[in-house]
Amino acid sequence: MNKIKNFINHADLRKFRFWLQLFFFVFFIYGGYLAIDLGRELPIFACGYNHEIAGTCYFMPLQHQLARPWETLFSVASIGVLTSFFVFLLWFIVFNKAWCGYACPMGTLQDWITSLRKFFGITYSTYTQPQYESLKKIKYIFLIIVIVFPLLLGLGILDGEWRGAFCDMCPGRIITPMFVGDFSQWSIDFSTKTAIFLSSFGIVFTALFFVGSFIKKRFFCFFCPMSAMHYIFSDVALLRLKKDGDKCTKCGDCYNVCDMQIKDIADDVKSTNILRDDCILCLKCVAACPEDDALHLDLVNYPIFKSTKGGFAKRMEIDRWEKKDD
């Protein structure tokens, strides 16, 4: 048992993550060819506009369900809305935000763009703290568009052209189908003014997605309403990112590797649950922590991956030294 634990704590997270991400990417994007269908309640941006998707982003059905007229929405007829919400919750609760860091095709794509940047030898950019503080609110605005706009539609305040407004704006709709050879989403819908606005927003956002994630690690996740949605329920999730503040020296190694620039991970020594709304649970912080047990990933209350001095040294390759002449 100790051997297994030791093996996991010394694991090369980078490799593990790369292969798992690749697996999930292929699984979700091309799963349809193998007739895999995990339903329409997935907590990731696996977009239903890709007809071969192995399961669909929950926001697509959610927006449609909430756009029902209010009399229907709040009647027994809408029991399905509740059940799909519970299915979404079930998916989410098991893996928490690890969906973002490991399974989301859009997230994986950004990591690959990051690798491309690295290949060209270009350094990444970061936000300053004030920029960070203001930009991080944007995802909640998107979440309002996802949830409140359909409700207003049901009330008759908004027109039908606002149906699925967020999907129209989302880069996932444009990008995901490309991987199965469908480029038809690269277009602006000129039917109405709203449609022009929404679809061109989508195109611009997609362009930003590529440029942004080339410059900044996980650029899009920062604005992702799914990430905001996750955070609302993350406290009840089974997989938890924990911190033992007593063991933390605030050295900031975790912050340094954090794609999402979460400052609390290094500076907060009071919280035990250190998962923040921007977190993608990629676990790079745990891997980069040089203190024994300071950061750990728990399944309920059982730690399954812990920070260790030895693991840190191994991953940084400072546990050995060969004299080389240059």
Partner: peptide, 14 residues
């Protein structure tokens, strides 16, 4: 000796 350097991307600036 206590605190160690961690690097995400091995570029000079990082």
């Amino acid at each position: 000796f206590n605190d160690m350097v961690s690097v995400d991307e091995w570029f000079v600036n990082d």
